[in-house]
Design a protein around this nucleic acid. Structure first.
Lengths: 253, 253
DNA sequence: TAGTGGTCTAGACCACAGC
DNA sequence: CTGTGGTCTAGACCACTAA
């Protein structure tokens, strides 16, 4: 009895089709994001209600809800029961995994990077451990000095499994965003990052690179970036001038 | 025609009832959390699938999904399409708004607090602004030195609107968690917090209080805590010894 | 092939805010 | 009162993984 399936008349009118290849809720988000980015929607302005969005996008209420719920987690909108959904003050995108280039762009700064070191190494035990690899694995090590507004802003060291990114060292890593290269050329889907943040003092080498006094406080971030499938892709150890950076996050109870 | 409503026979069997006063998806979360906390479920162990949870808790699939989706955002579980949902490694609860007392407890440390200052003031312009109040509003100012493991760990200054918390200065703020007092005695439902994190150097006063050298790097966190209804409840400015703290967060792409 | 999570429907009732 | 977001149903089909 292969045709035991019922396929109710009511079921599945458009869902199988995803115009643009994107899920409906993400398409709705894209529209709202665009309206905010373009200034068409200002902070405090009301976003269309769940019911409006459902109607205009021809989706069910749950789908429209899903779109708004995610935007709220990002801090892009605020939802108030009985009142509506509103564009949030522009506190920068909370808890959003972005490349350094993207972060600077969000602050209307153009970031550049100077590559100080780019080789395959096999003696980086800690990095290997963070990537869940054996201690002496072949690892791409990439040291970059980050500039913005004509000043040195930060110093980052990236580690990636060499076997996963053949030829990466020949890519234009000096000019292009590493995120962009990974996503476009290596088809890596970045999913999330776990980060450890603390404060530390600039050692002589870093102080000189960042053009600040020795012992100056720095923000230190250790970041393990995972793919959407949960595989550790990259470990980044970064030191950020504290007079030029502050981390903005949102926590929920 | 007031009775135009249809009330389909199929609709609403149990939903109106919330045994325990809690939404179904939160009850499911509570059960899973309990099993993890008690060690009954270890990191890597599979969590019941959406369909299992739906069956055993007598809810629909969407509701079970909702429960698991939130637990994933907290970093408590990991979901893998086609495979299942698993208890995540115990990286501490990401992006979770917790009081200092709760955070230390999660690290199996007992925190205590010494109150250095507790008065109503009206000249804290910046704090007032963070709380969205007029510049010279009456504000409760509370300075506390945080101890754990017999050492000074951190220095925090809290600001709350005085009109919202009458009598707070008479509460046992030295012994009890401020979060607990607010939630229990003032019926405040804490919702989320926006935080700005950077690094700074210890000034003479803070260095002495924390028993560290001057100019030592500290983690500085400015935190605005909001109620579930989006009202700013408390502003906390904290300095944390960087050798005793690191912030753990998760970001999503 | 069976089982998982991901997306989606077409509604429902509730709690809440503002008029 | 209307309109909003919050919770929920009883399914559906899809994409994916593993046996």
């Amino acid at each position: 009895m292969p045709s035991g399936k019922k396929t109710l008349a009511v079921a599945q009118r458009f869902p199988a089709r995803m115009p643009g290849g994107l899920p409906a809720y993400q398409r709705i988000q894209r529209v709202i994001r665009k309206r905010i980015d373009s200034g068409q929607l200002q902070p405090g302005d009301p976003v269309p209600s769940e019911r409006d969005l459902a109607k205009t996008h021809h989706v069910s209420l749950m789908t429209a809800r899903h779109a708004l719920a995610f935007l709220e987690r990002e801090g892009l909108v605020e939802r108030r029961r009985g009142i509506g959904t509103f564009v949030a003050p522009p506190k920068i995108h909370f808890n959003k995994l972005m490349s350094y280039t993207e972060q600077m762009a969000a602050r209307t700064l153009t970031a550049s990077a100077k590559v100080l070191f780019a080789e395959i190494v096999d003696n980086e035990n800690e990095a290997a451990a963070r990537l869940s690899l054996p201690p002496t694995s072949a690892i791409i090590k990439l040291e970059r000095l980050r500039h913005a507004a004509g000043e040195p802003f930060a110093f980052e060291t990236c580690y990636l499994e060499a076997a996963e990114c053949p030829g990466l060292l020949d890519a234009p890593i000096a000019r292009e965003s590493l995120f962009g290269i990974l996503e476009r050329d290596y088809k890596v889907e970045l999913g999330y990052a776990d980060e450890e943040v603390d404060a530390t003092a600039a050692d002589p080498r870093i102080a000189e690179m960042l053009a600040i006094p020795r012992r100056e406080p720095l923000l230190r971030i250790r970041q393990v970036i995972y793919s959407t499938k949960g595989k550790a892709i990259m470990y980044v150890l970064g030191f950020y001038r504290s007079d030029r950076h502050n981390l903005v996050i949102r926590r929920f109870r």
